[in-house]
Write a protein that binds this DNA or RNA. Sequence first.
DNA 1: GTCACTGTACCGTCTGGATGGTACAGTGGC
DNA 2: GCCACTGTACCATCCAGACGGTACAGTGAC
Lengths: 182, 182
Amino acid sequence: MNTPVSTRQKILETAVSIVDTNGAAHLTIDAVAAAAGLSKGGVLYHFPSKRALLEAMLALLMETSALRLEKLREEPGVQLLPMIGPLIMAEQEQQPKQRAMALAILAAAAEDPSLLTPARTYIAERFREAGSDTTDAQLAHVLLLATEGLRFLDMLNLLPDGVTNRQQLFARLLELSRELPR
Amino acid sequence: MNTPVSTRQKILETAVSIVDTNGAAHLTIDAVAAAAGLSKGGVLYHFPSKRALLEAMLALLMETSALRLEKLREEPGVQLLPMIGPLIMAEQEQQPKQRAMALAILAAAAEDPSLLTPARTYIAERFREAGSDTTDAQLAHVLLLATEGLRFLDMLNLLPDGVTNRQQLFARLLELSRELPR
DNA sequence: GTCACTGTACCGTCTGGATGGTACAGTGGC
DNA sequence: GCCACTGTACCATCCAGACGGTACAGTGAC
């Protein structure tokens, strides 16, 4: 048993890093195996097909995100915020490696757009939450959209560093969320 | 001469539609040729390599967007708005086909992330513009981020229809932009 | 006006390499 | 003994790109 759970994790993280540096088109089982220090057979042992690998990447992204949300909501200070608050914070506090996991969305979209179905449900739920405890659900949705915009631009390295500042933008988003009418 | 200009255009639009329905991984010169009613050689005549095709897709996206912006800014009513106004409107008034052109970003990212370099410059310029004529550049950037978030979620069909309404969201974004301090 | 030539817009075929997936024998730690 | 692999061999398919060729409109010299 060569630490099987973390091998799975390592494969998934390696896959994401390939998408990051080389693009989703170059996400191949061979490439993942080589970069993760495994044989092709080894990768296929954990994920019987490329589709399964992509599904797992997307699932990990959503699980990690859901877990982070759950923990944030347990914190006493956070419970005073509107629902949109932890959604913004969860995105803000991500480590670069976790943030890169969002590339699973690109990889899935590249291979087969129908793989995104679970993500659609997940995101719809976040929007529902964001609008659930304010009388101005639309404004809450605008804030969530901005958070998602930040995520996507960041993920594609399209964010202009000189013009904007991630941390300040998140701080502002949080501030705006505190002003939502209850 | 079989209307050569529109053939080029047709190829680019066909390429985008393939990315939309099948995913960027299935964007091949063969597939484009077949869907556009050309031979592979015919496509390669217009775009000497797949990379050139992707560059042209991205360039078309930015040209179209820039043109739409330019026209909007000439309209008298629009000139009273802050700079972020037309940026939001340009995104709002797009036809579905134009909106799908944004998938060029995904296709480029899938093939080679470095293809996105021109887009990076373009987006940086938009952010600079958005923050240039208000004392609250940060808020303008939040609005632009929301617009981009809308674009990306829409492009991946991740927008929850039941929860949000595109047109209402755009209207709200425009309203918020009018409240920006000058 | 016709002839030689050029440039444009393709078509159809081919090749080498990459890719997903299968199969299966072996191995080392627990 | 079985779990978690390795390693090799292999196959069918896909794909980018090169290449040779075709059709034809236009041009300019004579």
